[in-house]
Nucleic acid binder design. Structure first.
Lengths: 159, 159
DNA sequence: AACGGCGTTAAGTTGATACTGAACGAATTA
DNA sequence: TAATTCGTTCAGTATCAACTTAACGCCGTT
């Protein structure tokens, strides 16, 4: 592997690590992002020089988050992983979901907590409104983007 | 402090922790979110039953991220902290900035790395376009939201 | 100048978790 | 059935960072 690619993979490792994921997960993602074909677990482990166990657990973790997808090959019982075509939508949806969990905790405070202060109540209400608005906008934009992408793909004849 | 509030604070602690921040930072945020007035460092330390040092460092961390703001009081040299009125915009902008750093790393790969595969190049290009589009939409919506908020505030006579 | 309150900084401890190596289980082949 | 080749899981370690305690520095007051 060339120097620049190795550096990019390391950057992705640090980037995803700052996002709360294991560094190896980021490296796997980085490598697959610039790989033409899907890679097997052993392939990933060899290329990244890490243990097979780490690759196994982290690949599954990324798959669960929609960052990777598992594919099979005929007459091959190995697990292959690659970045999905809808990577962007997946991660975006994931972010929205996490964001919503946080939002629900905040807004539930308005009703569940014994708050008497009007200022605090108004603060929580405004925060809830802001979230609801932005969330709706993002969801709509994402849906429109997906629709336009699908349209392009069909025109271009992509399966 | 009542049971429900304590639980809410703990929830915020875990929520921000899953976002890469120290748990105490989340607790400080949770407490101030449901506090009517700004609180001093000692006040926060006593209420949360943590060391003054932790409160000091974490409060400054949150201030740097736009989650908290520091305020002063006449004839009082203590530091008081509170959640800013534009909390939502601040955190949103922060998220966008972090997202952009990640995005730049990905798109720079398209030009800096010796990639020969057309599939990979197209993948990176599509990802870049998707990011640019969504980023623009979010930025616009946020600006419009801020404008409408400011409008409401002036109508309501808020300083 | 000495004292006390306040915030920050530094060293040390502790807790969490990423990662490895090895054992295990399942599926395939000989 | 024995032997391989996969993937997963488990126990152990090692690293990292949050948190605490203690010391420091600064600013006001007496």
């Amino acid at each position: 592997m060339d120097r620049a690619t190795a550096h990019f993979i390391e950057t992705m490792g640090l980037a995803l690590e700052s996002d709360g994921l294991p560094r190896i997960a980021g490296r796997i993602f980085g490598l697959l992002l610039v790989s033409e074909e899907a890679r097997s677990l052993d392939d990933l482990a060899a290329e990244l020089q890490v243990s097979k166990a780490s690759v196994s657990t982290n690949a599954r973790l990324l798959e669960q988050r929609g960052v990777l997808e598992q594919v099979g090959r005929p007459a091959d019982r190995r697990d292959y992983y690659q970045v999905p075509r809808d990577l962007f939508s997946n991660t975006m949806a994931q972010r929205l979901a996490r964001w919503q969990r946080f939002h629900e905790a905040v807004t539930s405070a308005r009703t569940n907590l014994p708050i008497q202060s009007p200022e605090v109540l108004q603060r929580l209400e405004e925060y809830g409104e802001a979230y609801a608005h932005m969330s709706r906008v993002i969801r709509d934009a994402l849906a429109r983007w997906q629709a336009s992408r699908k349209n392009k793909m069909s025109k271009a004849g992509v399966s």
